[in-house]
Design a protein around this nucleic acid. Structure first.
Length: 575
DNA sequence: GCCGTTTTCGGCCCGACTGTTTTCAGTCG
């Protein structure tokens, strides 16, 4: 059975960890990490690429050796090198590597000197004072490690972007009170709008760093100061969220923002380009010898290596640098491009507001249209609609539309895709709607083959328009169900259907990678909020952020169309 | 392990902070 890309990427990462513990050449370690990132970012399964005869060694950073290892992994799920490393290196070493403050060198010292087999044994050794006696360890290391070991089980997972906002805004307000502070911005994965963030990176400009660092560490939500120097500091908030602060002079703002926004892989690639041109790029600027030639803005930094500005959401070293050099960067979609929302619920099922209230909220946001897509009867726990209630809802929509209040409601349904791929309402009922979005809400555990067939059959239905939350995942809570997404994307293209990019911050389903694949295949995406309350309509911005990470432009998104242009697109499948 | 407009060998991004091995290695981002 072929192995899927995330598993291949994980195996490569495991090799990198273990090689690191063996004190291998750091550049060899990097090659494995880089390969892992590249495989994770592929839209196509490696097994499919192999079947059609693609040469993996043409992928960036992957040479003949890694190509062969990746092919072995794809075909067999195993890698002899990995098996060998696992035999030679105790499993506890990999676990210790994850503790903050421990790198490969000190993990080796611990394992060899203390004969550790699990983290509990380290805990006891710390309490007995045996660790502080080891070379390269001392009293301070003991304290930090004790904290790390005891906190490891309750360490917060990565935080969803929307939740991170709640911590960031008050902290920024507090920092604005620091003496001499000028610019203040959040960089890192937060600025790149990744769906989750591991920590928060804040950049400030000021003539002197010390007062800003002092203000930062004095914030009332700070639980622990992990490091504090004259220009940077790291704290853990009481919630466990880690926050890094960096302070630079105003003339370095652009260089520092670029450096601090990442991703690391993007930065390394940019610096290498600079290096080839005899430039040194660091967080203070772009330098030729001692002379600073750029750095006040990010645009200057890119300009120094003859590239146009690259939007933060693209900075993952997944081809954006090559596209920038070739002048083919996408013109990314913006929130203002959206004209409507094609996924919303009302209190007829599990929403909280009436039709009229949802219509008014959408109008207030400046939307031209809103599709009402309540659940169908199979989803009994939501009081899903049967044909009679759906028809009554349609009449109510007609009455609201007749008022011509500036918003048009579309008659839709989020119809359940049943286990065999049939839809939960009769054809003649679906045929009376403006729009049918279908979704899987049950039997998440079907095999990949069955789940894929189920959805493909639903797409074949003559009234099917949009596949809602295509993988069913809940970020950090529920894995996506196992489906062959490239196949579904191709089927949507053949059938004239659309896929949803569900904008709910718990879902963001599709992923950036699948968005990009859909774009390449020519399938339009519908950014839908799946609103269950009026306030959820504002989640459109999270969908747009994800769309931008997926390289989507205005024309790649269905609901950037005016109502007039939208209707024929929806009608195309309503035959 | 990868890669090539100085190179098929010899490089590989760059700097801050910490603790401890009193001059810098380890770790992190």
């Amino acid at each position: 059975m072929p192995t899927h890309n995330p598993d291949i990427a994980q195996a490569l990462d495991d090799v990198a960890d273990l090689l690191e513990l063996q004190n291998a050449n750091p550049f060899r370690v990097r090659a494995y990490r880089n390969a892992s990132r590249v495989i994770r970012g592929l839209g196509t399964e490696v097994s499919v690429m192999l079947q059609r005869g693609d040469d993996l060694a043409e992928l960036p950073g992957i040479g003949d050796d890694l190509a062969e290892k990746i092919a072995t992994l794809a075909k067999s799920g195993h890698l002899p090198l990995l098996d060998r490393l696992r035999k030679d290196i105790p499993a506890v070493a990999t676990e210790l590597l994850k503790l903050p403050g421990l790198g490969p060198k000190r993990v080796r010292v611990l394992c060899e000197e203390l004969d550790l087999h699990n983290v509990e044994q380290l805990h006891r050794a710390l309490l007995d004072g045996r660790v502080r006696a080891l070379p390269s360890f001392g009293a301070a290391s003991e304290t930090k490690l004790l904290h790390a070991v005891e906190a490891r089980s309750k360490a917060p997972a990565r935080l969803k972007l929307a939740l991170a906002e709640g911590y960031v805004e008050p902290l920024l307000d507090w920092l604005r009170g620091a003496a001499g502070i000028d610019q203040l911005i959040v960089a890192g994965s937060y600025r790149r709008c990744r769906e989750t963030v591991g920590d928060i990176d804040i950049l400030a400009t000021a003539p002197k760093g010390e007062p800003v660092v002092a203000r930062f560490t004095a914030y009332e939500e700070v639980g622990r100061v992990m490091a504090a120097g004259s220009t940077r500091a790291t704290v853990a908030l009481k919630s466990g969220l880690q926050v890094d602060l960096r302070v630079v002079l105003p003339e370095s703002y652009g260089a520092a923002l670029h450096y601090f926004t990442g991703s690391k892989a993007h930065n390394i690639a940019i610096r290498r380009i600079g290096q080839k041109r005899g430039l040194k790029i660091n967080e203070y600027g772009v330098f030729r010898g001692q002379k600073r030639i750029a750095g006040r803005t990010e645009k200057e930094v890119y300009g120094a290596v003859d590239l146009p500005y690259i939007e933060p959401e693209l900075r993952e070293n997944r081809g954006e640098i090559e596209a920038a050099a070739a002048g083919t960067l996408p013109h990314l979609i913006e929130l203002a491009d959206l004209r409507g929302d094609l996924h919303a619920h009302t209190n007829a099922t599990d929403g909280h507001e009436t039709l009229a209230e949802m219509a008014e909220a959408a109008r207030a946001l400046g939307l031209e249209y809103l599709a009402i897509t309540d659940h169908s009867r199979h989803l009994a726990m939501t009081h899903g609609l049967d044909p009679r209630r759906l028809m009554r809802q349609g009449e109510a929509i007609d009455r609201i539309n007749a008022e011509k209040s500036g918003i048009t409601l579309l008659k839709g349904i989020e119809v359940d895709i049943l286990e065999d791929g049939a839809l939960d309402l009769p054809d003649e009922v679906l045929g009376h709607l403006d729009f049918v979005t279908g979704a899987v809400h049950s039997q998440f555990g079907l095999s990949r083959a069955k789940q894929t067939e189920r959805i493909l059959r639903a797409l074949e239905h003559p009234h099917f328009t949009v596949l809602a939350h295509p993988t069913g995942r809940l970020i950090e809570e529920r894995e996506p169900y196992d489906v062959d997404m490239p196949r579904i994307i191709r089927a949507a293209k053949e059938r004239g259907c659309f896929l949803e990019l569900n904008a709910h911050p718990d879902r963001l389903d599709l992923t950036d990678i699948h968005c990009r694949l859909a774009k390449e295949e020519g399938v339009l995406l519908s950014i839908g909020t799946d609103s269950h309350r009026a306030q959820d309509l504002a989640n459109l911005r999270f969908g747009v952020a994800q769309a931008r990470r997926g390289w989507l432009e205005k024309n790649d998104v269905l609901n950037t169309r005016s109502l007039k242009a939208l209707r024929p697109l929806l009608a195309r499948t309503m035959r």
